[in-house]
Structures are given as structure tokens and as C-alpha cells.
């Protein structure tokens, strides 16, 4: 039986969870919620990925990294598919991912549309500098308590 030699899906998910996001390396791809599905189709592993923002340049690197990691683990028959539906939402960032973001200095997304507090000092007197930031997923904010600017992971 071929299937006896195939790694389990839990094992595959574990490997994918080790891959850091190329632009925010404290987050893993699992934290980010971009790996939508992992399945064996016969002896071919199919991994469904979803882009965060449609034009995010990191998407191509994520595909490369997933492929590199799985090849390294001995998976020869591999198919990466793009899944647009349902569209990625910041709600898919894991609780652990949100905590990691804040510890890294990026305020995690909030349904209210702005950061809850300054990721540096915890202050709540905040102002928006710009709706856009250094990557498609971020906006720039400033804390009026510690006067430091910080990135906010914008909510979509």
C-alpha cells in the first residue's frame, strides 16, 4: 500500500506551521491563516493557499517556501492551488498570531477599524497617520502617550 508510506496530514500541517511569513517573520503561515486546506489526492499532496491582499508580493514567496519545505520533507508529488473563495480575512489570524504581532510591535487588527492600544506602551490615546503602510496589510498610527509611531495590521 502506497498510503502507508505517506506522511499524515497532521504531520504536513506541522511542517507548514514552521514556515515564517516572509514580511512579518514572527508570524507563521499557520498563524496568518493562508493555508486553507491540505489533502492527499491519491499519492499527490494538494495544498490550497489563499492570498491576503490580491497584489501582495509576498504571495509568490509563500508559494515558493511551501514548495521548498515540502520537497525538503521528501514530498515529490505536490500541487499548490490558489483558493480565492471565501476571501481571506484578518479574522483568520490565530489568537497566538495576534499576540505575536503585538509583541513584535504591530497592533493586531480590531473589528472597530483601529488599534485597541499602542503595542509599545499600551496607551490608548492614538491617532492615524496614514491608512496605508510599508506592506499592503498595514496602516500607520501614532501613540500620543509615548509619541512613538507604530504599524497597525489593518482589518479586512
Amino acid at each position: 500500500m502506497v498510503s502507508a508510506t505517506l506522511p499524515s496530514l497532521a504531520e504536513v500541517r506541522g511542517w507548514l506551521a514552521e514556515i515564517p511569513d516572509p514580511e512579518i517573520p514572527v508570524l507563521s503561515l499557520a498563524d496568518l491563516g493562508v493555508i486553507r486546506d491540505v489533502a492527499w489526492e491519491g499519492d499527490t499532496l494538494e495544498v490550497a493557499l489563499t492570498p491576503t491582499y490580491s497584489g501582495c508580493p509576498a504571495t509568490a514567496f509563500i508559494r515558493l517556501e511551501v514548495e521548498r519545505k515540502l520537497r525538503e520533507k521528501g514530498i515529490d508529488k505536490l500541487r499548490l492551488v490558489e483558493r480565492l473563495d471565501p476571501p481571506w480575512t484578518t479574522d483568520w489570524i490565530s489568537a497566538e498570531g495576534r499576540a505575536k504581532l503585538e509583541a513584535y510591535g504591530i497592533a493586531p487588527p480590531q473589528p472597530a477599524g483601529g488599534p485597541a492600544r499602542c503595542p509599545r506602551c499600551g496607551g490608548t490615546d492614538l491617532e492615524r497617520v496614514s491608512q496605508f503602510g510599508s506592506t499592503p496589510c498595514k496602516a500607520q498610527w501614532r501613540c500620543r502617550d509615548c509619541l512613538e509611531p507604530f504599524d497597525y495590521f489593518k482589518c479586512i
Partner: peptide
Amino acid sequence: DIALANIALDLIGQ
């Protein structure tokens, strides 16, 4: 500058 480049990037992704 960054905002316009970001919007451009989204549009080209679309």
C-alpha cells in the same frame, strides 16, 4: 506616496 503605491498594488493584484 506609499498610499498610492499600495492602491496601485491592489489594483494590479486584481
